[in-house]
Design a protein around this nucleic acid. Sequence first.
DNA 1: GCGACAG
DNA 2: ATCTTGTCGC
Length: 238
Amino acid sequence: MNDRHNLHWLEPPSLAAATKIQHEIAAACETKDRLGVVGRIAGADVSMKWRDSRGPIHAAVAPILWPERRIEPAATATRIPRFPYVPGYLGFREAPAVLAAWEGLVDKPDLLLVDGQGRSHPRRCGVATQIGVLLDMPTIGIAKSLLCGSIEGEVGPRAGDRAPVVHRGEEVAIALRTSPRGGPIFVSIGHRLSLETAVDWALRLSEGRRLPLPIRLAHDAANAARRAAASSSLPSEG
DNA sequence: GCGACAG
DNA sequence: ATCTTGTCGC
């Protein structure tokens, strides 16, 4: 893994320092396909207590085998965030916990879907790109709403319908309809694959649901980890 | 300067 | 992100 930018996390960076790091990571981000045989795919997501932005972050990385779709046990990790929630800097808050969860996986996935933006970010450095570059792994950003840019045209009502998302003249994401119900999701490059490949995988893994299976599994696993931590710290339990 | 703003 | 129950529809 690429440790270069991890050094910056020994101390919480200032916003200015974080911005500089984002530019470096964006420069290292690869937007062409560089993935091998994809036999294991994982989703990454985090969960935290309501209205407690300084409380622990519970991260989960949930793998499945492809194309068998066999679900493997999710790895989880809990970290106290050293960074507040600031739109545009989500990676500095969530990536450390996700990377810790990733370390817990014995068999590493070939592809990682991350809940959040990839290159569809003001500095082309969303959390999916940040995690992808640090791990040097192919990643896809799966977001439920937009951070920047706008949809060009209409998305169409059927699964597979799509429209480009453009920011400052650049196509940074695809608004993709994955389910007849609910709004489109926003698929972007994380690292080491093309936008078209990212959209292909997002659609293939959604199977009529709004979110790709690995993202749903990671969401569930992160929530389970948070609830387990809450119940194990009950007064009666010690 | 003002508004918008992933999770 | 998170709280929460039922309810409507395929």
